[in-house]
Nucleic acid binder design. Sequence first.
DNA 1: CGATATAGGTCAGATAATCTGTCTTTATGA
DNA 2: TCATAAAGACAGATTATCTGACCTATATCG
Lengths: 163, 163
Amino acid sequence: MPAAVSRPLSTQAGFPDRHTTLGAALRHAYDALSEHTYAELAAAGFADIRPAHRVVFRHLAPEGSRIIDLARAGDLTKQSMAYLIAGLEESGYVALESDPEDGRAKRVRLTPRGEAAMEILLKTSRAVERRLDRRLGAGTSSTLKQTLGSVAALLQPPAPAGD
Amino acid sequence: MPAAVSRPLSTQAGFPDRHTTLGAALRHAYDALSEHTYAELAAAGFADIRPAHRVVFRHLAPEGSRIIDLARAGDLTKQSMAYLIAGLEESGYVALESDPEDGRAKRVRLTPRGEAAMEILLKTSRAVERRLDRRLGAGTSSTLKQTLGSVAALLQPPAPAGD
DNA sequence: CGATATAGGTCAGATAATCTGTCTTTATGA
DNA sequence: TCATAAAGACAGATTATCTGACCTATATCG
């Protein structure tokens, strides 16, 4: 008797607490937010920005940044960052100019199109927080962010001492 | 004047709110938790479980699961899931047995080693939540999970109507 | 009961996003 | 001025995805 109804594994018995962990909750919220953000970005005409590109928008300084600085900020190698930048340059989100202060370096800078995408990202983020506050009460998103900060702080230090 | 001190881009001016968004907070917390979890796993002798493998541990039923069900639960193709399972089988975390109820199917099941890894995952998760409650007050992790659930719920529906 | 459709799984090949290693050019500093 | 370091480019490998084609076992239906 195959075609066994394909029951959702998530609700099966055994390892009962596996889907109610903090990790699962964080992942679901983050995934939902990510999907929402991409949908907004795509709806605004920026469908060619892929998940990996976000690390660039996260750290690019308005005056332009060097590839190596972006790589450090995003915690990946300069080669990987260069690869991402090349993609964004090809699709017109950033432009590369040589750094007047250092002949070895280039500066990555947002184009107007890149700035428009950045606007959408920030706008979407603000809108989600507003919706959350409207739904669960003013201050919810602020409190949530603070608690999340504590979670990160709790785990960041590589176990400083004892325990 | 190169070697420009490699200032942390995160604190530069411009796009000032970019690093205080809900998304950034979620990402930091999730990343910190992930790293912590891998560190615990590695410390317990399971260093060969890679991030991609976690989708398997997330959904594998104790009685064993078919590849296709795991793929659906984890939202990837059966080919991708088969690839992950092959890696876990080779390193001894799961075993494949033919499904007595369906000649076409196989069942993926945790080996004792796989169950030991699962134990670590669950134990680590519980420990983090306990630490959080001790640090920020009993019920913190529970409330946090609930709020995160609301965030996911707020964003999950593909915009049902208007707005 | 046999033909055909469906479902589970595999194989082959492509792509994205990482990595390591090496090389060139430029800057820094002893 | 010369040795060293730093920024970036080029080449190649690996991991984790995907799509498409295919095989085989099972189910269904005439």
